[in-house]
Write a protein that binds this DNA or RNA. Structure first.
Lengths: 144, 144
DNA sequence: AGGTCTGGTTGTATAGTACAACTTAAAGGG
DNA sequence: CCCTTTAAGTTGTACTATACAACCAGACCT
Protein backbone atom coordinates (compact mmCIF):
# COMPACT_ATOMS: atom_id res chain seq x y z
CA UNK A 1 0.00 0.00 0.00
CA UNK A 2 2.40 2.67 -1.08
CA UNK A 3 1.89 6.19 0.17
CA UNK A 4 3.91 8.99 -1.41
CA UNK A 5 4.65 10.87 1.77
CA UNK A 6 5.60 7.83 3.75
CA UNK A 7 7.96 6.73 0.99
CA UNK A 8 9.57 10.14 0.72
CA UNK A 9 9.97 10.20 4.47
CA UNK A 10 11.65 6.82 4.44
CA UNK A 11 13.96 7.80 1.60
CA UNK A 12 14.95 10.91 3.47
CA UNK A 13 15.52 9.09 6.71
CA UNK A 14 17.55 6.30 5.17
CA UNK A 15 19.68 8.55 3.00
CA UNK A 16 20.38 10.69 6.04
CA UNK A 17 21.40 7.68 8.06
CA UNK A 18 23.61 6.53 5.25
CA UNK A 19 25.27 9.94 4.90
CA UNK A 20 25.95 10.08 8.60
CA UNK A 21 27.82 6.80 8.54
CA UNK A 22 29.54 7.02 5.20
CA UNK A 23 32.75 8.82 5.97
CA UNK A 24 33.55 6.91 9.07
CA UNK A 25 32.72 3.68 7.28
CA UNK A 26 35.01 4.57 4.41
CA UNK A 27 37.74 5.45 6.87
CA UNK A 28 37.41 2.03 8.48
CA UNK A 29 37.32 0.29 5.14
CA UNK A 30 40.48 1.96 3.86
CA UNK A 31 42.27 3.93 6.54
CA UNK A 32 44.97 4.99 4.14
CA UNK A 33 42.64 6.93 1.86
CA UNK A 34 39.79 9.18 2.93
CA UNK A 35 36.60 9.19 0.95
CA UNK A 36 37.58 12.45 -0.66
CA UNK A 37 41.13 11.38 -1.49
CA UNK A 38 39.71 8.23 -2.95
CA UNK A 39 37.34 10.07 -5.21
CA UNK A 40 40.06 12.48 -6.29
CA UNK A 41 42.33 9.62 -7.26
CA UNK A 42 39.47 7.86 -8.99
CA UNK A 43 38.73 10.98 -10.97
CA UNK A 44 42.34 11.30 -12.02
CA UNK A 45 42.33 7.74 -13.22
CA UNK A 46 39.05 8.20 -14.96
CA UNK A 47 40.20 11.25 -16.84
CA UNK A 48 43.77 10.18 -17.27
CA UNK A 49 44.93 13.29 -15.43
CA UNK A 50 43.43 16.71 -14.98
CA UNK A 51 44.07 20.02 -13.30
CA UNK A 52 43.37 20.88 -9.68
CA UNK A 53 40.81 23.42 -10.82
CA UNK A 54 38.89 20.74 -12.64
CA UNK A 55 38.75 18.63 -9.52
CA UNK A 56 37.54 21.59 -7.48
CA UNK A 57 34.82 22.36 -10.01
CA UNK A 58 33.72 18.77 -10.30
CA UNK A 59 33.50 18.13 -6.58
CA UNK A 60 32.42 21.60 -5.53
CA UNK A 61 35.41 22.00 -3.29
CA UNK A 62 37.37 25.14 -2.72
CA UNK A 63 40.59 25.25 -4.68
CA UNK A 64 42.55 25.61 -1.47
CA UNK A 65 41.05 22.38 -0.21
CA UNK A 66 42.00 20.58 -3.38
CA UNK A 67 45.45 22.12 -3.28
CA UNK A 68 46.06 20.69 0.18
CA UNK A 69 44.55 17.33 -0.60
CA UNK A 70 46.72 17.01 -3.66
CA UNK A 71 49.76 18.13 -1.70
CA UNK A 72 49.06 15.34 0.77
CA UNK A 73 48.61 12.78 -1.99
CA UNK A 74 51.81 13.97 -3.57
CA UNK A 75 53.62 13.61 -0.25
CA UNK A 76 52.36 10.05 -0.16
CA UNK A 77 53.73 9.52 -3.63
CA UNK A 78 50.33 8.75 -5.12
CA UNK A 79 50.06 11.71 -7.44
CA UNK A 80 52.54 13.65 -9.49
CA UNK A 81 52.36 17.04 -11.13
CA UNK A 82 53.41 17.61 -14.69
CA UNK A 83 53.75 20.99 -16.31
CA UNK A 84 50.80 21.81 -18.52
CA UNK A 85 51.99 22.07 -22.08
CA UNK A 86 50.07 25.17 -23.01
CA UNK A 87 49.77 27.07 -19.74
CA UNK A 88 52.70 27.73 -17.50
CA UNK A 89 50.45 28.39 -14.54
CA UNK A 90 48.76 25.07 -14.62
CA UNK A 91 49.81 21.61 -13.60
CA UNK A 92 48.36 18.43 -14.90
CA UNK A 93 47.92 15.92 -12.12
CA UNK A 94 48.53 12.27 -12.77
CA UNK A 95 48.46 9.12 -10.75
CA UNK A 96 51.86 7.67 -10.12
CA UNK A 97 52.21 3.91 -10.54
CA UNK A 98 52.01 3.69 -6.81
CA UNK A 99 48.89 5.85 -6.79
CA UNK A 100 47.31 3.62 -9.40
CA UNK A 101 48.22 0.60 -7.31
CA UNK A 102 46.78 2.03 -4.11
CA UNK A 103 43.64 3.08 -5.92
CA UNK A 104 43.28 -0.38 -7.41
CA UNK A 105 43.68 -1.94 -4.00
CA UNK A 106 41.14 0.32 -2.35
CA UNK A 107 38.76 -0.06 -5.25
CA UNK A 108 39.02 -3.81 -4.95
CA UNK A 109 38.30 -3.67 -1.23
CA UNK A 110 35.33 -1.44 -1.72
CA UNK A 111 34.02 -3.55 -4.52
CA UNK A 112 34.34 -6.66 -2.41
CA UNK A 113 32.55 -4.99 0.48
CA UNK A 114 29.69 -3.87 -1.72
CA UNK A 115 29.42 -7.25 -3.43
CA UNK A 116 29.34 -8.94 -0.09
CA UNK A 117 26.73 -6.63 1.19
CA UNK A 118 24.55 -7.02 -1.86
CA UNK A 119 25.23 -10.71 -2.24
CA UNK A 120 21.71 -11.85 -1.53
CA UNK A 121 19.99 -9.33 -3.76
CA UNK A 122 18.68 -10.70 -6.98
CA UNK A 123 19.81 -9.23 -10.21
CA UNK A 124 16.58 -7.43 -11.03
CA UNK A 125 16.59 -5.65 -7.68
CA UNK A 126 20.21 -4.60 -8.07
CA UNK A 127 19.48 -3.23 -11.46
CA UNK A 128 16.48 -1.27 -10.27
CA UNK A 129 18.28 0.03 -7.19
CA UNK A 130 21.17 1.21 -9.34
CA UNK A 131 18.73 2.92 -11.64
CA UNK A 132 17.00 4.69 -8.79
CA UNK A 133 20.26 5.96 -7.37
CA UNK A 134 21.32 7.25 -10.74
CA UNK A 135 18.03 8.98 -11.16
CA UNK A 136 18.13 10.44 -7.68
CA UNK A 137 21.66 11.78 -8.03
CA UNK A 138 20.99 13.12 -11.48
CA UNK A 139 18.05 15.08 -10.17
CA UNK A 140 20.35 16.91 -7.79
CA UNK A 141 21.36 20.27 -8.92
CA UNK A 142 25.09 20.68 -8.63
CA UNK A 143 24.16 22.41 -5.39
CA UNK A 144 23.11 19.33 -3.67
CA UNK B 1 20.20 -6.49 -19.81
CA UNK B 2 21.05 -6.34 -16.15
CA UNK B 3 24.51 -7.48 -15.12
CA UNK B 4 25.26 -8.01 -11.43
CA UNK B 5 28.70 -6.50 -11.43
CA UNK B 6 27.72 -3.46 -13.41
CA UNK B 7 24.82 -2.81 -11.08
CA UNK B 8 26.94 -3.20 -7.97
CA UNK B 9 29.49 -0.87 -9.49
CA UNK B 10 26.83 1.73 -10.17
CA UNK B 11 25.38 1.43 -6.70
CA UNK B 12 28.81 1.88 -5.21
CA UNK B 13 29.63 4.84 -7.39
CA UNK B 14 26.34 6.61 -6.79
CA UNK B 15 26.28 6.03 -3.06
CA UNK B 16 29.83 7.33 -2.86
CA UNK B 17 28.92 10.42 -4.82
CA UNK B 18 25.95 10.96 -2.57
CA UNK B 19 28.02 10.56 0.59
CA UNK B 20 30.57 13.03 -0.64
CA UNK B 21 27.94 15.70 -1.15
CA UNK B 22 25.65 15.03 1.76
CA UNK B 23 27.14 17.06 4.58
CA UNK B 24 27.79 20.13 2.54
CA UNK B 25 24.31 19.87 1.07
CA UNK B 26 22.79 19.61 4.53
CA UNK B 27 24.82 22.59 5.66
CA UNK B 28 23.47 24.63 2.75
CA UNK B 29 19.94 23.46 3.37
CA UNK B 30 19.98 24.37 7.07
CA UNK B 31 23.05 26.33 8.07
CA UNK B 32 21.92 26.53 11.66
CA UNK B 33 22.03 22.78 12.26
CA UNK B 34 24.69 20.38 11.03
CA UNK B 35 23.70 16.96 9.85
CA UNK B 36 24.92 15.46 13.10
CA UNK B 37 23.19 18.00 15.32
CA UNK B 38 20.06 17.46 13.34
CA UNK B 39 20.16 13.73 13.83
CA UNK B 40 20.89 14.12 17.54
CA UNK B 41 17.90 16.38 17.99
CA UNK B 42 15.75 14.07 15.92
CA UNK B 43 16.79 11.16 18.09
CA UNK B 44 15.92 13.07 21.24
CA UNK B 45 12.52 13.86 19.85
CA UNK B 46 12.02 10.32 18.72
CA UNK B 47 12.86 8.87 22.10
CA UNK B 48 11.40 11.63 24.14
CA UNK B 49 14.79 12.23 25.75
CA UNK B 50 17.76 9.99 26.40
CA UNK B 51 21.26 10.01 27.84
CA UNK B 52 24.39 11.17 26.07
CA UNK B 53 25.76 7.67 26.27
CA UNK B 54 22.77 6.35 24.38
CA UNK B 55 23.35 8.84 21.61
CA UNK B 56 27.00 7.88 21.42
CA UNK B 57 26.14 4.21 21.21
CA UNK B 58 23.43 4.72 18.65
CA UNK B 59 25.51 6.87 16.33
CA UNK B 60 28.86 5.24 17.00
CA UNK B 61 30.36 8.48 18.17
CA UNK B 62 32.85 8.95 20.95
CA UNK B 63 31.26 10.16 24.14
CA UNK B 64 33.48 13.22 24.10
CA UNK B 65 32.11 14.14 20.69
CA UNK B 66 28.57 13.80 21.92
CA UNK B 67 29.41 15.75 25.04
CA UNK B 68 30.61 18.69 22.98
CA UNK B 69 27.78 18.52 20.49
CA UNK B 70 25.28 18.54 23.31
CA UNK B 71 27.08 21.39 25.01
CA UNK B 72 26.77 23.38 21.80
CA UNK B 73 23.10 22.56 21.44
CA UNK B 74 22.56 23.52 25.05
CA UNK B 75 24.33 26.83 24.46
CA UNK B 76 21.93 27.41 21.60
CA UNK B 77 19.06 26.69 23.93
CA UNK B 78 17.86 23.71 21.93
CA UNK B 79 18.51 21.02 24.50
CA UNK B 80 18.26 20.87 28.26
CA UNK B 81 19.65 18.46 30.80
CA UNK B 82 17.59 16.97 33.56
CA UNK B 83 18.96 14.93 36.40
CA UNK B 84 18.40 11.25 35.93
CA UNK B 85 16.10 9.97 38.64
CA UNK B 86 17.96 6.79 39.45
CA UNK B 87 21.57 7.60 38.63
CA UNK B 88 23.30 10.68 39.95
CA UNK B 89 25.99 10.41 37.30
CA UNK B 90 23.64 10.57 34.37
CA UNK B 91 21.62 13.32 32.78
CA UNK B 92 18.58 12.88 30.65
CA UNK B 93 18.64 15.15 27.64
CA UNK B 94 15.47 16.72 26.37
CA UNK B 95 14.54 19.07 23.60
CA UNK B 96 13.53 22.49 24.80
CA UNK B 97 10.46 24.03 23.19
CA UNK B 98 12.84 26.05 21.11
CA UNK B 99 14.77 22.92 20.16
CA UNK B 100 11.55 21.25 19.12
CA UNK B 101 10.66 24.30 17.08
CA UNK B 102 14.01 24.45 15.32
CA UNK B 103 13.89 20.75 14.63
CA UNK B 104 10.39 21.08 13.21
CA UNK B 105 11.51 23.91 10.97
CA UNK B 106 14.54 22.07 9.68
CA UNK B 107 12.56 18.89 9.24
CA UNK B 108 9.99 20.79 7.21
CA UNK B 109 12.69 22.27 4.99
CA UNK B 110 14.29 18.93 4.43
CA UNK B 111 10.98 17.30 3.71
CA UNK B 112 10.11 20.00 1.21
CA UNK B 113 13.49 19.61 -0.50
CA UNK B 114 13.08 15.86 -0.78
CA UNK B 115 9.51 16.12 -1.99
CA UNK B 116 10.54 18.61 -4.60
CA UNK B 117 13.35 16.46 -5.73
CA UNK B 118 11.22 13.37 -5.96
CA UNK B 119 8.21 15.18 -7.34
CA UNK B 120 8.22 13.50 -10.71
CA UNK B 121 8.71 9.97 -9.41
CA UNK B 122 5.68 7.81 -9.52
CA UNK B 123 4.43 6.23 -6.39
CA UNK B 124 5.49 2.70 -7.20
CA UNK B 125 9.09 3.81 -7.83
CA UNK B 126 9.19 5.79 -4.59
CA UNK B 127 7.96 2.83 -2.71
CA UNK B 128 10.50 0.48 -4.25
CA UNK B 129 13.36 2.95 -3.79
CA UNK B 130 12.43 3.38 -0.13
CA UNK B 131 12.36 -0.37 0.27
CA UNK B 132 15.77 -0.80 -1.33
CA UNK B 133 17.31 1.84 0.90
CA UNK B 134 15.85 0.21 3.98
CA UNK B 135 17.15 -3.13 2.89
CA UNK B 136 20.56 -1.73 2.08
CA UNK B 137 20.94 0.08 5.38
CA UNK B 138 19.62 -2.85 7.35
CA UNK B 139 22.25 -5.07 5.80
CA UNK B 140 24.96 -2.85 7.19
CA UNK B 141 26.47 -4.08 10.32
CA UNK B 142 26.61 -1.35 12.92
CA UNK B 143 30.17 -1.03 11.70
CA UNK B 144 29.27 0.45 8.43
C1' DA C 1 51.93 48.14 -21.89
C1' DG C 2 48.26 47.86 -18.54
C1' DG C 3 44.29 45.90 -16.63
C1' DT C 4 41.89 41.80 -15.81
C1' DC C 5 41.22 36.92 -15.46
C1' DT C 6 42.77 32.25 -14.11
C1' DG C 7 45.50 28.48 -11.65
C1' DG C 8 47.45 27.68 -7.58
C1' DT C 9 49.42 28.30 -2.70
C1' DT C 10 49.38 29.94 1.90
C1' DG C 11 47.45 32.10 6.18
C1' DT C 12 43.83 31.77 9.25
C1' DA C 13 39.69 30.08 11.25
C1' DT C 14 36.11 26.67 12.23
C1' DA C 15 33.74 22.16 12.79
C1' DG C 16 33.83 17.55 13.83
C1' DT C 17 36.05 13.92 15.43
C1' DA C 18 39.01 10.61 18.35
C1' DC C 19 41.77 9.16 22.26
C1' DA C 20 43.46 9.59 26.80
C1' DA C 21 43.24 11.31 31.46
C1' DC C 22 40.37 12.57 34.90
C1' DT C 23 36.08 13.03 38.23
C1' DT C 24 32.25 11.34 40.28
C1' DA C 25 29.01 7.94 41.21
C1' DA C 26 27.07 3.28 41.11
C1' DA C 27 27.66 -1.78 41.76
C1' DG C 28 29.59 -6.03 43.26
C1' DG C 29 32.48 -9.21 46.05
C1' DG C 30 35.10 -10.30 49.83
C1' DC D 1 30.92 -2.45 55.03
C1' DC D 2 34.89 -1.17 52.50
C1' DC D 3 37.50 -1.67 48.25
C1' DT D 4 37.85 -2.51 43.56
C1' DT D 5 35.76 -2.19 39.25
C1' DT D 6 32.63 -0.27 36.01
C1' DA D 7 29.85 3.54 33.96
C1' DA D 8 28.61 8.61 32.72
C1' DG D 9 30.42 12.68 31.53
C1' DT D 10 33.96 16.48 30.91
C1' DT D 11 38.23 18.38 29.47
C1' DG D 12 42.88 18.54 27.26
C1' DT D 13 45.04 17.71 23.07
C1' DA D 14 45.57 16.65 18.34
C1' DC D 15 44.26 15.89 13.64
C1' DT D 16 41.48 16.25 9.29
C1' DA D 17 38.59 18.48 6.24
C1' DT D 18 36.93 22.43 4.97
C1' DA D 19 36.15 27.54 3.63
C1' DC D 20 37.40 32.27 2.77
C1' DA D 21 40.63 35.83 1.88
C1' DA D 22 45.02 37.50 0.45
C1' DC D 23 48.32 36.74 -2.46
C1' DC D 24 51.57 35.43 -6.65
C1' DA D 25 52.42 34.37 -11.28
C1' DG D 26 51.29 33.53 -15.84
C1' DA D 27 47.85 34.37 -19.70
C1' DC D 28 44.79 37.16 -22.42
C1' DC D 29 42.78 41.31 -24.42
C1' DT D 30 42.50 45.35 -26.01
Amino acid sequence: MPDRDASVETIQRELTAFARRARAAAARMHPELSLVSFTLLAHLEDRGGCRATDLAAHYLLDKSTVSRQIAALERLGLVERRPAPEDQRAQVLHLTPRGAGTLAQVTANRRAAFRERLADWDEADLDRFAGYLLRYNASAGPLD
